[in-house]
Design a binder for these strands. Sequence first.
RNA 1: GCACCUUUAGCUCAGUUGGUUAGAGCGUUCGAUUCACAUUCGAAAGGUCUCAGGUUCGAAUCCUGAAAGGUGCACCA
Length: 772
Amino acid sequence: MEPSKAPEPFLKPYNPTEQEPQMLAAWEKSGYANPDVCIEKGVTLPDAEAYSIVLPPPNVTGTLHMGHAAMLAIEDILIRYHRMRGKRALWVPGTDSAAIATQSKVETDIYKSEKKTRHDLGREELMRRIDAFVEESKTTIINQTKKMGSSLDWSRYAYTMDEKRYAAVMEAFARMYDAGLIYRGDRIVNWDPKLQTTVSDDEIEYVEQKDAFYHFKYGPFDIGTVRPETKFGDKYVVMHPDDERYKEYKHGQKIDLEWINGPITATIIKDKAADMSFGSGAMTITPAHSVMDFEIAQRHKLDIERVIDDRGILLDIAGEFKGQHIKKARAAIVEKLKAKGLVTKVDEGYVHNVATNSRGGGIIEPQIKRQWFIAVNKEAKFPNGKTMTLKRAMRDAVESKDTQILPERFEKIYYHWIDNLRDWCISRQIWFGHRIPVWYHEPKCVPIPGREADVEKCVMTIVSADEPKCQFCAAKYTQDPDTLDTWFSSGLWTFSTLGWPYFAQSATKDKPGPENDLANYHPTAVLETGYDILFFWVARMILMSTFLRGEVPFKKVYLHGLVRDEQGRKMSKSLGNIIDPLTMIEKYGADATRLSLVIGASPGNDLKLSEDKVRGYKHFANKIWNIARFVLENQADESTLQSKVDNGLTEEDKKLVEEAEAVAKEVSGNIDDFRLDLAADLVYHFVWDRFAAEILEESKAILKGTDEKAAASRRHTLYAILNTSLRLLHPFMPFVTEAIWQQLPKSPSAQGSGGTRKESDLLMVAKWPLLR
RNA sequence: GCACCUUUAGCUCAGUUGGUUAGAGCGUUCGAUUCACAUUCGAAAGGUCUCAGGUUCGAAUCCUGAAAGGUGCACCA
């Protein structure tokens, strides 16, 4: 290549907007994101070690935000690195239906434009609307994901509500039901009166609120509450057994007293749940609308009576207040109690936490409901032959180090969560989601004469989609109207995306093809996600995989921090501090955007991002571009690039080559330790401060000098360092490095032979430095 | 209440098992630039490493305690 014929593609400055779509097209055409293709084309060996990641599926409803961008950047770096190392690297893409969030968004939109509720539309019509919405949103997020340069294998794309994942959900439900781990029961659950559905404990968000705190005279006791509207049915007064103030009262003792709607008989209950240091130490309980009260009532086999209905309306027990909404009734009830002289004190501005539905719902009202649960404290037989509880299995997975959580401090948090875990309520009263695969016999079975049947057993679980009929009376069964918690299907994600249950038996290790994915790629190498969904998702995947597969879902969990604004605040619409990844890609390029999300992001710690930072890394992309221009323009001709670099190098140049190799070694080590931040920072400084600022500068004199041998040696050396740098940078900045790679003369030494890896013309599958 | 995280230059952060004079980027100030670089280069100013003890020949780093900011969990009658 003559200096006079500077390669045309090297326009200055580097223009990501122009280069990126071309590189994306080249990668997509190559099919190298699919390990089966890599094997077929010889760039990966058939028996190479597997390295797999399943993408935490973004919600179909959403658009790409910085959190997604960070996740995509980190996972793509890992995948590209391991692919270049010669592994069979698989990264499985997908999207999540996000049941409650999606339905409530669509419902809200419909109500805004048409003033109709879901009940006006009916189940089928609503589902049609949601599906249409999902279809539209889905392409948005998929296209945005691609723009980040994510080398996902789209041929294995999965959606939590598609046919294969539906089959997985049915199979999982049936197996857990048969093992006695899924049961239906009347228990107190978190009820959202606004969305008219239950929510799990983890979906609750506590919000601080100021309310008046009332003290009431309850016979001889002083009781306190912020919720007078629940107190109608209170006929038990609870105190700690060791409370000296109340030692004259005995457990079970009856006391007659005057209450809201007239005289009642209260019963004394002694229970350790009563906090002696809070208020008077005595409290009345409302078992139907409080988790703690419900538990006390269960311990002592007390009566439980509902006071509030599903919509927050007071029931018969409220007497004259019946039919009123709890919000409105409160003041009136307090007035009545005041008139009766039962209010002893009112503390205004009492600060307490109110449970709300974090998925866009309302204030949680505990209710007793017939729901489906997963028993976490019940023993069951696992595929590995052990008999234990789900809790135990979840603990074991991490204690045994089969799954390692990084950074390690999150292990403690994980254990703590498990220890406090209650049975998981998996049924939801929304319509969008996997419908519970249970059919009921309603009305009850009346067997045809001559066919004997156990009428009580006419509840059944069916995995097929056909409507089942009763074999004793030929009546059709009715399917449970509820749907499953979205995390139920998400819990299966690592293996439902890899062919379970279809190929659970037949998958064969080291044979290519999606039908063998389970054997090749499960357990996955690493699950990479934000620490905020450790419990929602990570723990539940471990639960599902250990029980259904007898193995952990992933060998490592790597938790990254959250992306925040410059001042460390969460990015939100209301604060107006959102930095949109797509805008950043347009302005500064995907490479710069990726790097800004990696450098400075140490494991598990939040990252503060500013636009200046992204801009800074755009400069770096341009720097690399110009380094390449310089190195290529200063070659005497193409032949100087094609002989081995270690032939006839000067002592000084040998050292430079070694220096680059030392950097490569350190970068590899950092990536292996998940210190992508350090790896990227190191190579950044090597390339800019050392290679460009020092090595290149001193080379100018050598190249122009009279010592031909030294000049030739330096040409080789510069090319070698450029070549190594491009390989090192590729996982972090795939676009600019690939664009430059395409301009390099092809070296014959790059061809593979015999049983070794070939090197194709794409940097994406080039060999990582230091590999033979 | 229990746990965890953070605290290093004006801002954002590195600083790995303790070891020269604690570093980088951005910003600021001054200067250079016919050069691979419009996005370049050089230099300067800027530090009680949050505080108080301790271990050590030696501490930003290890230990104890405190403060400030943040997060999670529990409680919330």
